[in-house]
Amino acid sequence: MKAEEIKADIVVDARGSFCPGPLMELVKTIKDAEVGKVIEVLSSDASSAKDIPEWVEKAGHGLIGVVQEDSYWRIIVKKIK
């Protein structure tokens, strides 16, 4: 299944927030979520679109994909542990 077609369990709308806002919102959400849940972060901040996938890998979660929309990115993450 393509990243575009994944239905997230939780959507974190961090558009309008700058680094490290979107990442910190993801961190909080992922901490409270159950293992296996899919979380989608919406970010209008280009550096977050690059940095969040790095964080996801280092933190040991799963990056499903990064989808670029017109004016923002959708970063789709699965909580692994």
Binding site: G16, S17, F18, P20, G21, M24, K31
Partner: peptide, 18 residues
């Protein structure tokens, strides 16, 4: 002037999450 989170808030969040 912009709505970036300022360092006091960033440190506060970090204390809560990490």
């Amino acid at each position: 002037q912009s709505n970036v989170p300022l360092f006091v808030e960033t440190f506060r969040q970090a204390k809560e999450t990490g």
